[in-house]
């Protein structure tokens, strides 16, 4: 079944298209400031290796918990204190993707990363952020396959 990405994320992408580079950076830093690390009830340090995003150099971890019949809440940790882009992206996913229907989560295109961070994103950063998105989508697809 094909689906559109979560409306809250689509709205954010539309909004970002009107921002210049400096405004976009300000906006993303606000997200990074709102980043909340995974609660202890979900995971405690040291975080398990299988939750680590392999391609992310900011030591990002992703978890999912069930939230209703067709949705999940995603949790994140970013262990590199300088991983501010990773933190902003995790906060965006938490605010716009957590709680969305699983098919919508699976339908998020990879180029959303570039729409948010701009084309001048370095390949290393792009790869890490895509890795975070793919980890979230992996949870959504797995849950959908379980018939939740």
């Amino acid at each position: 079944m094909s689906a559109a990405p979560p409306p809250a994320l689509a709205e954010l992408l539309e909004e970002m298209a009107f921002l210049d580079r400096a405004e976009r950076i300000e906006y993303l830093i606000e997200y990074a400031d709102r980043f909340v690390s995974v609660p202890e009830r979900i995971a405690a340090r040291p975080y398990p290796e299988e939750r680590r995003v392999k391609r992310c150099e900011s030591q990002a971890y992703v978890w999912a918990e069930d939230a209703g019949p067709d949705a999940q809440r995603y949790h994140f940790a970013v262990e590199n204190p300088q991983g501010i882009s990773a933190k902003s992206f995790c906060a965006i996913l938490d605010e716009t993707v957590s709680g969305a229907p699983l098919a919508q989560v699976a339908a998020i295109p990879g180029d959303a990363v570039f729409a948010i961070y701009g084309r001048e994103l370095s390949m290393g950063k792009g790869e890490g952020l895509l890795g975070i998105l793919e980890a979230v989508q992996g949870f959504a697809r797995e849950a959908a396959a379980r018939g939740r």
Partner: peptide
Amino acid sequence: NEDQLLYPS
């Protein structure tokens, strides 16, 4: 920086 958000933060 590599990360464009670091300096402004």
